[in-house]
């Protein structure tokens, strides 16, 4: 455990001296928190009477009973952007973890590190947590800020209840960390196979594509995110995480990494 803590502290001490990474960890969650709040603020004037007639089918599917058309519109618009809270735990770890192994290769610090008695499991756990913890914490802080903001902006208790649907709590509290683990392990897997940090970052960015598909699928009306879909998504992520951790450990071949890297 001490070695894992050492790796985490080392990674944070190194990574957060990089202004680009630090700004990603700080500003990305703030941006993703601000967007739904701006939507709420912009749509706050949609009154009781507005949009009560001819409500599009997707609105009525999306809103709980008892909301007026205007309130439903507000909830619908904001929910489009709630997926951004699931992007934060995907994007932040890419920046940290993609550099994780390949960065050690380029600075030639990997060989002395691997010469210590640290096991592969300890090393990868340390690097995993070092990348995942900031992402998850930043996501949660962003979500808390969103709740506070929504509570201030929204006047209707019915809208507030709809916005803070348990579905989003599951998305942020459960799916968020699962996405972070997926992102970290995918990035570490890529990072241990390539020799250039930029290539590692670009390849690792592929991991956000499934979530983008979900985002655009919902915006275009192909499907609607609901509790069942989020739970199914969480289950799929759990399976993917297990597979990703397995492959990340399998692909981390100390000898190959050392001898193929010049």
């Amino acid at each position: 455990m001490k070695k894992i803590k050492t790796i985490i502290r080392k990674e944070w001490a190194e990574v957060f001296k990089n202004r680009l990474v630090l700004s990603t960890v700080v500003f990305l969650p703030l941006l993703f928190t601000a967007i739904p709040l701006i939507m709420l603020f912009a749509t706050r004037g949609t009154g009781e009477d507005a949009l009560t007639n001819d409500m599009p089918a997707q609105f009525s599917q999306f809103c709980p009973e008892g909301l007026s058309g205007g309130e439903c519109f507000q909830v619908y618009m904001v929910n489009q952007f709630m997926l951004m809270f699931m992007m934060t735990p995907l994007i932040i770890p890419v920046n940290i973890a993609a550099y994780s192994i390949v960065g050690e290769k380029t600075t030639h610090s990997l060989e002395p590190l691997l010469a210590t008695p640290i096991t592969t499991a300890e090393l990868l756990t340390g690097k995993n947590l070092a990348a995942a913890i900031p992402a998850v914490v930043a996501t949660w802080i962003g979500f808390i800020l969103y709740i506070i903001g929504a509570w201030i902006i929204v006047q209707s208790p019915r809208v507030l209840t709809a916005l803070l649907d348990p579905m989003w709590w599951i998305a942020v509290v459960v799916v968020g960390p699962l996405l972070a683990i997926l992102s970290v392990n995918f990035s570490i897997m890529v990072s241990s196979r390539v020799n250039d940090p930029r290539v590692a970052e670009q390849l690792s960015a592929v991991v956000i594509l499934p979530l983008l598909a979900l985002f655009f699928g919902q915006i275009s009306g192909l499907f609607y995110i609901n509790r069942q879909l989020i739970l199914l998504f969480a289950a799929v992520m759990l399976v993917l995480d297990v597979l990703m951790v397995y492959f990340a450990v399998r692909l981390f071949q100390r000898e190959t990494i050392l001898t193929r890297w010049k």
């Binding site: 080392k10 600075t107 060989e111």
Partner: peptide
């Protein structure tokens, strides 16, 4: 190569 962590 010494392979130190230059930022630390």
């Amino acid at each position: 190569s010494p392979g130190m962590y230059d930022n630390l």
